[in-house]
C-alpha cells in the first residue's frame, strides 16, 4: 500500500441480495468513494437494445415509441466482457462479435366466434417475454412469467414484427446502459461536517430525522465546538442493479475500470512526456 494512506481503504459488506447490496467503505477520501459511485452509475458497460428494424407495425404505438420502449428493457450482461464495442469492431455495420440480435413477432389473429363476446379479453399484451434472443446469455432480465415488461398492447388483427440489435455501451452515452437503478451514497449522517444545509420550516431535528446509518456513528454533542479539520471517514453505499449483473460484480468492475483508466494514462505519460522533462536535464 502507498506510504501515506495508513493501510488503505477497507470494505465491510452489510448485506448482499440478488440485485442489491449494502457496504461501508472506510479509510479513504471522499473523492475515491465518489469516483466509485460515479463509475458504477455511468461507466460500467452493459448490453441494451440500440437499433430496431421494424418490418410490420400495425399497433397503436408508433415505430419510434416502440423502439424507445425496447431500448429501456434491461438485458442480462453477465458475459458483456466477451462482446466488443461496435466502434472497436472490425465489422462494417454490426456482427455477432459486437452485438446480439433479438427478434419479436406477434400477430393477433381474429377469432370470429369470440369477436363480439364482451366477456372475452381480446387484448394481447406484448412483453419482454416475446423477445427471442439469438444469444442465450443476453436476454431480457425479467423473462420469468411473473414480472415481464410490457412493450405494447395489441388487439385482434394487429401485427408487430421487428428485429432488435443489442449493443454494448456505457451510461455516459445513454442511461439505458446503466447497470444500476440507484446508488445510495451517504457519509456523516449527523452532519457534523456541515456539508448539508437543510431547508427547514421551524425545527431541523424534527423535520430531518437521521438515517439508519447513524446507528454506526456517535451522536453529535451540541456543546462541542465545530471541528473544521474533520474529514468524512465512513461512506455508506447501497446499490440496486437492474438485474443485468450481480451487485458485487458492478462494484468490482467499477474498480477495475478505474484501474484501466489510470493504467492507460500512465502509458501515455510514459510514452510522451518523460522525454519532455529529460530535455530539461532530469
Amino acid at each position: 500500500m502507498d506510504m501515506y494512506n495508513n493501510g488503505g481503504p477497507e470494505v465491510s459488506i452489510r448485506s448482499l441480495k440478488k440485485d442489491s447490496m449494502k457496504f461501508v467503505l472506510t479509510n479513504t477520501d471522499l473523492s475515491v468513494a465518489n469516483a466509485l459511485r460515479r463509475i458504477m452509475i455511468a461507466e460500467v458497460p452493459t448490453m441494451a437494445i440500440d437499433m430496431v428494424e421494424i418490418e410490420t407495425n400495425s399497433t397503436v404505438l408508433t415505430d419510434e415509441f416502440i423502439a424507445h420502449r425496447l431500448g429501456m428493457i434491461p438485458l442480462t450482461s453477465f458475459d458483456v466482457d466477451r462482446i466488443q464495442y461496435t466502434r472497436d469492431c472490425t465489422c462494417s455495420h454490426y456482427c455477432p462479435n459486437c452485438s446480439v440480435e433479438l427478434h419479436l413477432h406477434v400477430k393477433v389473429t381474429v377469432d370470429y366466434e369470440e369477436m363480439n363476446d364482451p366477456n372475452v379479453d381480446k387484448t394481447r399484451q406484448v412483453t419482454s417475454m416475446d423477445l427471442i434472443s439469438v444469444d442465450d446469455s443476453v436476454r431480457p432480465v425479467s423473462d420469468d412469467k411473473l414480472h415481464p415488461i410490457l412493450i405494447v398492447k395489441m388487439r385482434p388483427g394487429q401485427e408487430l414484427k421487428l428485429k432488435c440489435v443489442a449493443k454494448k455501451g456505457v451510461a455516459k452515452e445513454h442511461a439505458k446502459w446503466s447497470p444500476v437503478y440507484g446508488v445510495a451514497f451517504e457519509y456523516d449522517p449527523y452532519n457534523k461536517l456541515r456539508h448539508s444545509h437543510y431547508w427547514i420550516e421551524e425545527d431541523e431535528k424534527l423535520e430531518w430525522g437521521v438515517s439508519a446509518n447513524a446507528a454506526e456513528e456517535t451522536p453529535v454533542d451540541p456543546n462541542e465546538p465545530f471541528d473544521y479539520n474533520a474529514k468524512p471517514e465512513k461512506f455508506y453505499i447501497e446499490l440496486e442493479t437492474s438485474g443485468c449483473m450481480k451487485p458485487e460484480d458492478v462494484v468490482l468492475r467499477a474498480m477495475t475500470i478505474m484501474q484501466d483508466k489510470l493504467g492507460g494514462l500512465q502509458i501515455k505519460l510514459d510514452d510522451e512526456f518523460k522525454e519532455d522533462t529529460q530535455r530539461w536535464g532530469y
Binding site: 481503504p9 465491510s12 448485506s15
Partner: peptide
Amino acid sequence: TDICSHVIQSFQAELAKGEFEYE
C-alpha cells in the same frame, strides 16, 4: 491504482468471509 487494488482485495476478502445478510 494501488488504492483501487486495495478496495478490490478488501471487497473480495469480505465476499469470501460471507459475514453479512445474504439472500
